[in-house]
């Protein structure tokens, strides 16, 4: 009788301990409902995070900047988002770090496109090289859209003020402005640019990836999270890399002519991406950028972005690449895009 009681207590204690060991770590992941975050959605849906003992809660934002703010403020543990000047300024204050990569603009892929208004096209804006002297719509100064035109300026050696950059605050405003000819050109995400040009509302001039490949987005974590819950971050990255490998197998293919094609595994992943982005198959197929198999990011390109923003006063002078990027979680690329 007594032995059985002790045995019962021991069994009870063991099972309690076991359940403590298996209690999932809660992690709040914030991001956008963008196709570029497909790997994160795949990892959630297929239970890769759960396999690592993580209890993931997703929260969605409608722009990149608020994600970085929420991670800084501790409202989110991990963010999956675009690299903006505002994010770099927050990172410079020691509140967050880049820990892994997401979308790259890589030759052959179509993520952000340059479009011309019909009016400007008729007046001779036929290619990207005709942009100097034209009005170019962006969301905000210091945004990725502004950086896109900045890279062109550097690449072709134009004068810094050759293209007049018009901040319009939102993609909706940019679409309105370029459709009506209020601006001559704009940079738009492929899932917006493709339907517009197919409908004849704008003329497509080219793709950012074909002109100036660069590191667009990545995974960020709050400094607190990295310092105090490092193993949780490591488990998160391990699961995330399973998904990026699967993404790579399904979507990162160019045919002999350099055209973006999908692998045989793509079919199974489309429904997941459609579900999390709340969009149709056509939009998803239009908006899948290159995402590195190892979830790597190009740290040399991050440094180049910082230099560009700092030279224009958009990022504070004291912000260095060491403060912004943590290279200890994934293999990073140390040579900038050519």
């Amino acid at each position: 009788m007594r032995n059985r009681t002790i045995a019962g207590l021991v069994a009870c204690a063991i099972s309690t301990l076991a359940s403590i060991a298996h209690a999932a770590d809660p992690v709040k992941v914030c991001g956008l409902r963008f196709t570029s975050s497909a790997a994160n959605f795949i990892a959630v849906e297929k239970g890769y995070y759960a396999d690592e003992g993580l209890d993931i809660t997703l929260a969605y934002f409608d722009a990149a900047q608020p994600v970085a703010v929420a991670v800084s403020a501790g409202a989110c543990d991990i963010g999956v988002t675009g690299f903006t000047a505002g994010m770099y300024n927050l990172a410079g204050r020691g509140t967050l770090r880049i820990i892994a990569g997401e979308a790259w603009e890589e030759r052959g892929y179509k993520f952000i496109g340059f479009v011309a208004s019909n009016e400007a096209y008729d007046k001779g804006l036929r290619s990207i090289r005709d942009l100097p002297g034209k009005r170019f719509g962006v969301t905000q100064l210091g945004s990725t859209f502004h950086y896109n035109v900045g890279m062109l300026t550097d690449k072709y050696g134009w004068d810094n003020k050759a293209v007049s950059v018009v901040p319009l605050q939102s993609v909706a405003n940019m679409v309105g402005a370029v459709k009506s000819g209020a601006v001559d050109a704009a940079a738009l995400p492929s899932f917006v640019a493709n339907p517009l040009s197919a409908g004849g509302a704008v003329k497509l001039l080219g793709w950012v990836a074909a002109e100036t490949p660069w590191q667009v987005s990545g995974v960020i974590a709050s400094k607190d999270m990295i310092d105090k819950r490092r193993s949780v971050v490591e488990h998160f990255i391990k699961a995330y890399k399973r998904a990026t490998a699967e993404y790579d197998a399904a979507f990162n293919h160019l045919d002999a002519g350099g055209k973006h094609v999908f692998g045989k595994d793509a079919e199974a992943l489309f429904p997941i991406i459609e579900k999390y982005t709340n969009t149709s198959r056509a939009v998803v197929m239009d908006g899948l950028p290159y995402v590195n198999k190892q979830a790597s990011y190009n740290i040399a390109n991050v440094a180049a972005q910082l230099d560009w923003y700092k030279a224009r006063g958009f990022v504070d002078a004291g912000v260095t690449v060491d403060k912004v990027a943590d290279a200890s979680f994934v293999e990073v690329v140390k040579e900038n895009f050519k």
Binding site: N89, G137, G142, S143, P167, L168
Partner: peptide
């Protein structure tokens, strides 16, 4: 000043917010 303003107090506030300054 959300509409393509190069100068203005509103444009200045918007830019500072976007850059987290």
């Amino acid at each position: 000043e959300m509409i393509g303003a190069e100068y203005g107090i509103g444009a200045l506030i918007l830019l500072a917010g976007n850059l987290m300054q």
